[in-house]
Design a protein around this nucleic acid. Sequence first.
DNA 1: AAATTTGGTATGTATGTACAAAAAGGTTAC
DNA 2: GTAACCTTTTTGTACATACATACCAAATTT
Lengths: 245, 245
Amino acid sequence: MNISIDHKSHIPLHIQAEQLLRELIKDPAYQAGKLLPNEVDLAKKLAISRTTLRQAINKLVYEELLIRKKGYGTKVATSKISSKSMNWLSFSQEMKTRGIPVRNYEMHLSWVYPEETIANFFDIKTDKKILKLERLRGGSDGAFVYFISYFHPRIGLTGEEDFKQPLYEMLEQEHSVIANLSKEEISAISASKFIAGKLEIDNGSPILFRKRFVYDQGDRAMEYNLGYYKAESFVYTVESRRNSS
Amino acid sequence: MNISIDHKSHIPLHIQAEQLLRELIKDPAYQAGKLLPNEVDLAKKLAISRTTLRQAINKLVYEELLIRKKGYGTKVATSKISSKSMNWLSFSQEMKTRGIPVRNYEMHLSWVYPEETIANFFDIKTDKKILKLERLRGGSDGAFVYFISYFHPRIGLTGEEDFKQPLYEMLEQEHSVIANLSKEEISAISASKFIAGKLEIDNGSPILFRKRFVYDQGDRAMEYNLGYYKAESFVYTVESRRNSS
DNA sequence: AAATTTGGTATGTATGTACAAAAAGGTTAC
DNA sequence: GTAACCTTTTTGTACATACATACCAAATTT
């Protein structure tokens, strides 16, 4: 076992050291809390400089796999963090689980020149129009969310699709595009005049604002979505668990 | 402006450099894609070594705020989704990853009879007082969040603990209670008079409100936490992936 | 005009060195 | 006993230096 460092390899030493460490800390003894060899000794043993070794250790420290303590040593973190277990739901599905029937109050399709941020996200130029979908949606007693979606040209949307059925199902069936990864930013903002008008609330009322960056199976940007939720009517829930081992 | 490095300060140079960079890249010119000054020049200008500067840059690269290209330069990442999907972070940790030093503006401990909802969550009676911790926290330029925490009596908090250090670390070390599961509800609300007063904003301003139910390793309720975030100052990020793999 | 070479620039890799600061454990004095 | 001090161990901070490698653009050749 006991892999070692190959100085003649074209693979950088700190990368080799990093991989070596990853293997090393799989040892139950280390998982149980045993201290790693100290930096100076380990560097000597691997025949690399302390600086190079630290480069490797630092990476694992950043990933919260290792914990270092000055004057004490380095050990494997007791429980690493991962907050998967996520709620990957479209709006329709979200509402269904809440038992609320969805209604579309307004729908508007248009072709627009993308703003800078969107063009950057899609990695396209700003001189080519893309499809913009706006929807005012809610339950039986009124609208409570305004959505704006932009789609990557790669998908090949014509604007003739049926946007009344669940969006992601349609994309999957009609265009073989599967949403795979979503990065979301949730914040609170004041309602602009436009949004306040749509949601029929006072100007400046609190809005739960959700930006959503959606990627396909190849982790390529596919949709940029903005959601403006009427304050009282929407709660975003997140469940995260620490997983030891 | 143009902050510089204080060699006499007790704050490590690479930390100073890191904060300086964080400020620097807020400049719209850099956000637009302009290249940062090259390492050698910048190090010279700041009167620190290239190694030290690289330490700072590396951290931002890890956070996906900066992108470096060999033979080309360093620029601000285009879609700066603040990465790190881990919503499992204590407030102190959250701030640390953002490079904002935490300050406690107010702290108040009290023993109160739990409200119905809290008693239900903890599965206790309402006639026994529990510990309530209120904290007004923020950065160097003002408070931006008001926290209210209730703790399960099982933990055995006396109120004499040091609540200035990171909460979950303290609980783990002093009371061997490890937070394991967290369910969160995020919504937007209007600031009540009380909260508006604490955060020094107008009555009715938008607030990002986070309810947090925290469970220990045995999935037993341990903390009930309410967070009122000043609107502009906090964005909640979530990253979720469909697991078809 | 198009393809290729080359040089300049910037980051990437790697080492050696020195001292600082925190933690742990042992020693001494009371 | 135990509190205060000292010593050792280990990570933290910081610098100077050298060469490697990728990217870009300008000069050169085809």
